[in-house]
Every structure is written in C-alpha cells, then in structure tokens.
C-alpha cells in the first residue's frame, strides 16, 4: 500500500489507566520497522505527538476503563473508528488494574486519597470490551513488538488478525525449555494463550498469564495440577488475579465500591 499521506489509513492511539509500556513498545516498533510510517498516517499519539484528530479509521486503545467518565470517551472512539484494537493486558483484560476489583473499592480509595476519597469517581477496572465492542486484541504486558507489527500488517491487507489459540506450554516445548514446575515454581502456561515465545518461562520465571486465557482452557485440570504442587485455593486465586481477575474471579467475588 502506498500513496500520499492523505490517502493512507488514519490511525489514532488512545490511553486510559496504564503504565504506557505498550505505547512505548509501539514507538520501539516504529523505530525498528520505520516502513510502517509509510503505510499509515498516525493522526493522534500522545506519547509521541500532541497532534489531535477526530477523524481516524483505526483506533488503538491502551489501558483499562477505571472511571465512569472514561466510558463516554470510549464510546466516542467507537463511533468514530471503523476498527478498534485493544492494546495490551490493561485494555484486553483489565490487567494489573483489576487486582483492586477484589478489594472493597472505597477502602482502596480511602487508602490512596484519605478523606478526599469521594472526589474521585474510580470504579472497578474494566477491560475495553466490557464497555465497547472491540474488533481485535494485541495481548500481553507489555505487548510483543513483533506481534504488533504482524497484526498491523494483516489489518492493512484487509484481513482479520488471528492470534495463536493454543496454550503457552506448546511454545515452551518447541523452545525445549525446562518446565518451570520441574523447578518448583508455578506457571500459568497451561491455560494462557501462546504468542510471546514463552519469554518468562524461557527466562526461568513462571508464566503470569498476561496474554489472557486460551479459548476453552481446561481450568479443572489446571487447578488439579496446581493442587498437586501443594497450592491452596487462595494461592491459586492469587496467581490468577495478577492479570486474570476479571476473567477467572470476577463472578465469584467482584466487590463493587
């Protein structure tokens, strides 16, 4: 695809509650793959530019929705964009922000804001698709640079991006990693969607599940595996809650503040 800047697909990046690590990874990708800048027209990207636009076709959203006021902004993005992509674990899952969903929110607010807690309209952290329809996801905390480039490429070819739909264990086997359970650690690999090259297990650290659940994960079998390794239900829940609070624990015990 080529053409004048005006003919290129107009792309915007938006951020909600997050650490911005995913946008920083996008900036990294634009540096290692500068040719991307020849096939899209980035019209809004706060991390790199203060230009603003209300005319875009593709919207990338980083971060969770953590305030009622965020919802309106999200709906506006949905109305404007043809294609909405959740960028990273906060947008995809609620991510780290959702840990607090298991704690009484007034408690969290008072801890942070003291007697001014009422001033801040924080509510349980939501994934973007809990508020608006999302057309595609680039998972991970942070996102994988190569996967980002791949998804964008596929999108520009007019195809629907597909993510690997098998558990992390398969990638780990392909890499011939020693199973971290063999080292006496816990790993969410058996239920987590592959696609990051199993970085954490390859570096000797159990998978945290930042890419979300694979479709139809065998949770019962997984919980048995954890139980075999001497983990209590509370410890298993703790493990799952790092990234997967909304996906695995929400119905059980979400406390609305």
């Amino acid at each position: 695809m080529s053409g004048t800047v005006n003919e290129l697909p107009r792309v915007a990046f938006f951020d909600f509650t997050s650490c911005e690590g995913c946008q920083l990874t996008v900036l990294d990708a634009l540096q290692t793959h500068p040719e991307l800048l020849k096939v899209v027209n980035i019209v809004e990207f706060r991390e790199a530019s203060s230009a603003r636009s209300e005319d875009y076709q593709i919207a990338f959203i980083e971060g969770s929705c953590t305030r009622p006021g965020d919802e309106e902004r999200l709906r506006k993005i949905r109305e404007t964009a043809v294609y909405v992509i959740a960028l990273g674990a906060c947008a995809h899952l609620g991510g780290i922000n959702a840990i607090r969903n298991r704690q009484p929110l007034l408690d969290v607010r008072q801890y942070v804001y003291g007697d001014k807690a009422e001033w801040y309209d924080t509510y349980p952290a939501r994934a973007i698709d809990q508020v608006i329809q999302v057309d595609a996801v680039i998972p991970g905390c942070p996102i994988d640079r190569d996967e980002f480039v791949r998804v964008v490429t596929v999108l520009l070819q007019g195809r629907q991006p597909k993510l690997p739909d098998y558990p992390m264990c398969i990638e780990c086997k392909l890499h011939e990693n020693i199973c971290v359970y063999e080292r006496g650690q816990v790993c969410l690999g058996p239920i987590t969607r592959a696609g990051c090259n199993a970085i954490c297990p390859a570096y000797g650290y159990g998978c945290e599940g930042c890419r979300g659940l694979v479709s139809a994960p065998n949770m019962e079998s997984f919980q048995e595996v954890l139980a075999q390794h001497g983990l209590s239900q509370a410890e298993i829940d703790e493990k799952l809650s790092l990234f997967l609070t909304n996906q695995t624990l929400l119905e059980k015990e979400l406390v609305h503040g």
């Binding site: 509650t17 997050s18 650490c19 911005e20 690590g21 995913c22 946008q23 920083l24 991510g95 780290i96 922000n97 840990i99 607090r100 704690q103 408690d107 969290v108 607010r109 801890y111 942070v112 804001y113 905390c141 942070p142 650290y205 945290e208 410890e235 703790e238 790092l242």
Partner: peptide, 28 residues
C-alpha cells in the same frame, strides 16, 4: 498524582511476585 493504589493492592499477594508486579507501576 498518586500511584494507582499499588501500595494497597499489593497487600495479600506473595512477596516473590513484587518484582514483576511493581515494575508495572511505570513503563518508563
């Protein structure tokens, strides 16, 4: 701005997890 409640929501979690949890405070 304050830290998104990190000090509070780390409570109840295993200490071994802190190197990978608290780094998420900031992508910079």
């Amino acid at each position: 701005p304050e830290l998104r409640g990190f000090e509070r929501f780390c409570v109840g979690r295993p200490v071994e997890e802190m190197p990978v949890l608290t780094n998420r405070i900031c992508g910079v």
